[in-house]
Amino acid sequence: MSMLEVDFQKKLPDFILTARFAVREGEILVLSGPSGSGKTTILECLAGLQKPDRGYINLRGKMLFNKTKRINLPPHKRGIGFIFQAYALFEHMTVKDNILYGAARVNGRKKREQILREVLELLGISHLQDRYPAQLSGGEKQRVALARALVSEPALLLLDEPLSALDRNLRERLRGELKQLHRQWGIPFVLVTHCRCEEELADMVLRPVASINEKGEQAICFSM
């Protein structure tokens, strides 16, 4: 059964972007294409940070966006985790506070502390918890970003070029960790990349298909 069903269009300055795909429970979908092909826009539409012009987005049978029914859930109600390209850690908070930010719904200090301990251990970053993002390396930042997203218990995780900012050795290692984390986590990932190196993670890879539509407009489509 599909867990995420997507079919939408959005007009961008240079072309019309179409996304049409479904992701099953526990799958990793990779959208692979050159920069400027609208991959990040697709992720932002899924997360509710941008609004498509037409179509729908369903997650676990819940409508997140539906143009004809005028549904557009705001990002904080979608339950979708987002790993930004530069990680977007809160620079004025320690690693610990960054991670706890997503756990605000959890009642009780003790319970939150326990969740924090577990996720710090899972990602091997317990020793970093009192540092600020500026004091972390790229790989460490990524682990913190993953921990922060994990704590908010998303039903879907979106990753924008998660490995491209890292050097090659680190990339190899983090790719393995990401795969393992995905297995433990058991939620689908949608990952965007311009680099073949990240495609190894995929259960399914979609590439952009460019065309000219009947009105003579440029169109780019990521479709199954």
């Binding site: 940070l49 930004f84 977007a88 850690l89 809160f90 997203a149």
Partner: peptide, 15 residues
Amino acid sequence: VDINQERAARTLGAG
């Protein structure tokens, strides 16, 4: 202000 830090907060459930 880095707009992505604000967006990250939203995706983490903050209104």
